[in-house]
Computed example of a mutant assay.
Amino acid sequence: MGGIVYGPYTGRYFDNDRETDIEHIVATSEGHDSGLCKATASTRIQFATDQLNLTLAAPEVNRCSNEGKCGLDASEWLPKKNLCWFANRVVQIKKICSKC
């Protein structure tokens, strides 16, 4: 994004990427609970490192707090901003994960 650091969950812009966390859109724990636990080690690594499943997030959103996602799935947590993007991305990731 031309050097602009943007957190899609909050719509916040950051001065640099050190102010953010890299966050799994579909948490690895959710992937595990949804059947990834039966997948090969290489498939689990692929899921955990797939760039489609990664985004930047403000630490207060990524970590466990009142506003935090904390490994919750889309039925338990939704972002304040960019809800359609988030829902679409979750579906894309889950489709890929179901083929694992």
Rank of each mutant, 00 (worst) to 15 (best):
H32Q: 11
N16A: 05
I25K: 02
T20P: 06
H32R: 10
F47K: 01
T28G: 03
E23F: 00
I25D: 11
D15S: 13
S42M: 01
T20Q: 08
G35S: 04
T49V: 06
E30A: 15
S29F: 06
A39C: 04
H32Y: 15
D17N: 11
T49Y: 01
K38G: 13
E23M: 03
T20E: 03
K38Q: 10
A39D: 05
D33N: 09
D17M: 10
R44V: 00
S42P: 01
E23R: 00
E30Y: 03
I25M: 12
V26G: 10
T40N: 03
V26H: 14
S34D: 09
D15C: 07
E19F: 14
R44C: 02
V26T: 11
E19C: 06
N16G: 13
C37N: 04
F14P: 13
A41P: 02
H24Y: 05
H24R: 08
S29V: 09
T49K: 07
A48R: 10
T43H: 11
L36A: 06
C37D: 09
F47D: 07
R44W: 03
I45L: 07
Q46H: 01
E23Q: 05
I45F: 07
I45W: 05
A27Q: 08
I22C: 11
G31W: 12
N16H: 12
I45P: 04
S34N: 09
H24G: 11
I25C: 05
F14G: 08
D21H: 14
S34P: 00
E23N: 00
T40S: 09
S29R: 15
K38D: 14
C37R: 01
I22V: 12
I45Y: 09
S42D: 07
S29K: 15
N16D: 14
D17C: 07
L36T: 06
A39S: 05
D15F: 15
S34T: 02
F47T: 03
S34L: 11
L36E: 11
T40D: 03
N16E: 08
A39G: 02
F47P: 15
I25V: 15
A27I: 02
G31P: 15
G31C: 08
A48V: 00
G35M: 04
C37M: 03
Q46V: 00
C37W: 14
I22L: 11
T20W: 07
R44A: 02
S42L: 04
S29N: 09
S29A: 14
